[in-house]
Amino acid sequence: MTTAVETIQDTPFVIGGRTFQSRLLVGTGKYPDMDTMVRAIEASGAEVVTVAVRRVNLDRTKESSVLHFLDPKHFFLLANTAGCYTAADAIRYARLAREAGFNDFVKLEVIGDEETLLPDVQGLLEAAKVLVQEGFKVLAYTNEDLVTALRLEDAGCAAVMPLASPIGSGLGLLNPLSIRTIKRRLHVPVIVDAGVGTASDACVTMEQGVDGILMNTAIAAAQDPVAMAHAMRLATIAGRAAYLAGRMPRREVAMPSSPTKGMLD
């Protein structure tokens, strides 16, 4: 697809030494069915797809692995530690995920609160340090706190992933200033993860200058996930292009767009 973003010089999107084409990363959870998931992910143009580590169903009712539907040669599988509430659990899940043999990237989540699913930043830092030591490329899901983001970068994380708003909430970008501040201060990629609800949210998020955006529910829970995935693809590209273009300054008073000279008497 030819887009404006291709006419603007953009820097490559590199995480942990690996270059990706799409700045939109998508999850694979909560789809009504696997066929819709596959078509939505294709429509999103995403290269990185997140997956969770769970027990195999032993009663053989064909509750198949997501890999049965997504070709790991075509997509970059980013395993998460979703559902983990302690550093020790997150480390255990990350090690199991790496053993699947695809890559050493992990989307690290250590959740601290069941209602809000906000991260436990202390557990997150602890787990990040251990996993970085073990050679993982850690993409850390965190809140929009600058100091935590800085600590995660210091700990050696390959990317820091502040939330737009709580996981699955669809509330959009609640704190653009904090996200811009994190992006300005960090050297590693900043990928906003969680909270977008619709295309305008993705666009506004990318306009803050962040490197990428990760979403799941906004696509999977849309009435038409495939159409929403397409919208998210365009919105991510549009937001990035607008950021690179540089927006006009805000003014609190009007300024005419048409000449004031040459008016009739």
Partner: peptide, 10 residues
């Protein structure tokens, strides 16, 4: 023994 695999997730 734990036997795990990848499932859909965000």
């Amino acid at each position: 023994i734990e036997l795990v695999h990848f499932v859909g997730g965000g």
